[in-house]
Simulated assay, not measured.
Amino acid sequence: MTGTTGTARHHAPRAHCVADSAGGLTFDMAGHEPGGPVEPVLLLSRRGADPADEVGLPLTPAGDGRSRAVLPSTVELAEGHWDVSVAGRPVEPGIRDVRALVDRVPEASGPVCARVPYPTPDGRLAVRSWLRPRHAEAGDLAFGDGGCTVEVRLYGAEPGEGAVAEARWGPQAHQVPVVGGEGGAFAFTLPYGTLAEPPPDKQRMWQLWLRPSAGAEPVRIARVLDDLWDRRGVFVYPETEGDGFRAAPCYSADNELCVRVVPVP
């Protein structure tokens, strides 16, 4: 369980949140009494989207002066950051029980859905949502001589002959062979030297993709099936230095796996 972080707002409502392994969220609040002239609603609003892109969850009595709102896993929540409010006021994060999200295995059918409640830097409750029809979940990374080996599990697409991993930076793309495929489990080794040619004069951020079979559309490799809404400051991998460059895997703000290559002065 994790507690409250950020700036305290004693005037704001506060919600405790429990996540389940299917992707559902339950919000419990104190100080709200359903039954008034207007039934209170817990509102989720997607940041940067059209104002109509909102999801309202009725608050119902839960005993002991508490109210409860439930976001079932069956209710679609578009990918992005969703701010939580009640009656126009932002909601503070209380206790967030996200233990059920660790090492999640999504349903065999349907899109991969992941929702992680989190505290914003200014002390508000928000939900990070991922919703992808096809997904390649990054697993363990191992490091060897001049490169890294990545384990990946594929969801929502059938593996077949000619599967490859791809590193992309702008219009450039490099492919490397993969091994495995049974049960959607793949692994590949990516040499950094290939990504540093020609010698870099600025940072290159290579995106990693999995093409599950020859001619199939590639699937972005990311890690979203756990309790971390932002991996950037949590997963820091060792750098490897080559001829005029340093390279290391890293995650983007969307928890998508990349390899960062920078010049060495």
Rank of each mutant, 00 (worst) to 15 (best):
G147C: 03
S129F: 07
A19V: 04
L210Q: 02
A187P: 05
P51Q: 05
C258S: 14
A138L: 04
V259N: 04
P111R: 05
G180R: 00
C17R: 05
G183W: 02
V18G: 13
S213Y: 10
L208Y: 02
G180S: 06
D28K: 10
D226S: 07
M1S: 15
T2V: 15
A114Y: 03
P171T: 12
P133I: 06
L101T: 02
R46E: 04
A248T: 12
P61C: 08
G144I: 02
S21F: 10
G80T: 03
F186L: 04
P61H: 05
A163L: 00
D53H: 11
L225D: 03
A196H: 01
L154N: 06
P37F: 14
D145Q: 13
V98A: 12
H81D: 15
D227M: 09
P198F: 05
Q175W: 11
E241H: 14
R231E: 06
D53P: 11
T194M: 11
R115N: 05
A163M: 00
R104I: 11
M1R: 15
F245Q: 06
M205Y: 14
W169R: 12
L210W: 01
H81W: 15
L190W: 05
H10G: 15
G88F: 03
A22R: 09
R46I: 02
E107A: 15
A214M: 12
R232N: 06
A216S: 10
V236P: 07
G233T: 13
G244E: 03
G184T: 06
T60D: 10
A12D: 11
H16A: 14
C17I: 11
L228S: 14
W209T: 08
W206A: 04
G184R: 01
A15P: 00
T26E: 08
P133G: 06
G56K: 10
A52D: 12
S21L: 10
C148I: 09
A222W: 01
K202V: 15
A187T: 09
A15I: 04
D50M: 09
A12S: 11
V86W: 00
P106K: 01
L101G: 02
R204N: 08
S129Q: 03
G24T: 06
A173Y: 09
C113K: 13
T26S: 08
S213N: 14
S213V: 12
V91N: 00
L195I: 08
R115L: 03
A214E: 14
S45H: 13
G24E: 06
D28M: 12
T120I: 08
G23D: 03
H174M: 10
R153P: 10
G48D: 06
S21Y: 09
I221F: 06
V86S: 01
